[in-house]
């Protein structure tokens, strides 16, 4: 339902459309992450949201005449647009894929990519596409900015790399009367192809965590919440099948609320929620399996004890104990350098 209202709003909202000669900026989607950027940009620019020019039926055949036709359609759409701002490219969204290619071919359009998520991976597979197509790449922190600059050099890309501060959806308002440990698991690969490791191995690790959380809750009286994946269902994530049998709480779809009130944050991937927790100043621990996609050394240095690489999942028990015993060693705000302006903003 939320998606329906968003798509209806996007179809009908255009800011400043009657003001001639203002630069036209197209945003890929209207969501809470870009809302403040849209509001600010609307003061001096004409704002559009990307229309879906075609049925989203194409999936496999990137070389077909149809897909080339879609790219041509978007190239035509972008001919009088100055910027195309995009923060993610869902894997089944053929319209957006064609729009990116169309904008790339449009001579007067600059593509502005706002890095949406974080992985910390040393494997650049997620960034290579944007190094090729984007004119501006906005990283969310200084370490990532330097990494992208290095990649741009390595892959001979002209992209302009800049830094921004990602919008946080909540403030940390820790419940002082309780002490809750929040565990936010990463997605399975069947949901999202983002590297990491096999779903079956991940499940094996999670079975262990369920047992350990049961122990901590029942025997040690710890308050633990497992934040269920938004895409959870029994076919994807068996952890969601019988949550009533756990001694800890299993809650789906309330991540931001849970994050804002927890006392400790646990996760199994260097992910956007991990950066969110660190940004908020929450004591955070990411236990990361050694066999996963390797994490950049600079990321590991920056987060110190908050990134714990394990070989055997049993090692995680002790590290969780360390977090609870000396939480102040696990507070690592994300480091920002100078925040850059967006290319449509006037420099002072």
């Amino acid at each position: 339902m939320k998606e329906f209202f968003r798509s209806m709003a996007q179809k009908h909202i255009t800011f400043n459309s009657k003001c001639k000669d203002k630069p036209k900026i197209v945003f890929s989607i209207l969501n809470r992450f870009v809302k403040s950027i849209v509001e600010e940009a609307a003061k001096e620019n004409e704002i559009h949201f990307l229309p879906e020019l075609f049925d989203n039926y194409l999936r496999e055949d990137s070389d077909s005449c149809t897909y080339r036709g879609m790219i041509a359609g978007y190239k035509d759409y972008f001919q009088d647009k100055s910027f195309f701002v995009i923060d993610r490219l869902p894997r089944n969204d053929v319209n957006r894929m064609a729009a990116v290619e169309g904008a790339k071919q449009s001579p007067c359009t600059k593509i502005v990519y706002l890095d949406h998520g974080e992985t910390g991976f040393s494997d650049p597979i997620g960034q290579i596409h944007w190094l090729r197509v984007a004119d501006y790449y906005y990283a969310n922190n200084t370490e990532t900015k330097h990494y992208i600059q290095e990649l741009a050099q390595r892959f001979d890309s002209d992209v302009v790399v800049r830094e921004r501060r990602r919008t946080l959806s909540v403030k940390w308002n820790r419940d002082k009367n309780s002490s809750t440990i929040l565990f936010a698991p990463s997605f399975y690969n069947s949901d999202l192809f983002i590297g990491q490791y096999s779903d079956t191995m991940k499940y094996k690790h999670r079975k262990f965590l369920v047992d350990h959380f049961n122990y901590l809750s029942y025997n040690c009286g710890e308050s633990i919440v497992w934040s269920g994946l938004s895409s959870s269902n029994e076919n994807v994530d068996p952890i969601s099948i019988k949550p009533e049998e756990y001694f800890f709480d299993y809650i789906e779809g309330q991540f931001n609320k849970l994050l804002s009130t927890c006392s400790y944050f646990l996760t199994d991937a260097v992910s956007t929620p991990f950066y969110d927790a660190c940004d908020l100043g929450i004591p955070a621990l990411c236990f990361y399996w050694k066999g996963s996609t390797p994490i950049r050394e600079a990321v590991r240095r920056q987060f110190g004890k908050s990134i714990f690489v394990f070989d055997d999942v049993q090692e995680v028990k002790e590290e969780i104990g360390n977090l609870l015993g000396s939480y102040d060693q696990y507070i690592n705000p994300v480091i920002h350098g100078e925040i850059d302006k967006y290319p449509w903003e006037k420099s002072i």
């Binding site: 779903d199 499940y203 068996p238």
Partner: peptide, 9 residues
């Protein structure tokens, strides 16, 4: 040989 979490479960 289980290929998915649900098969493991």
């Amino acid at each position: 040989i289980a290929l998915t979490p649900i098969a493991c479960y």
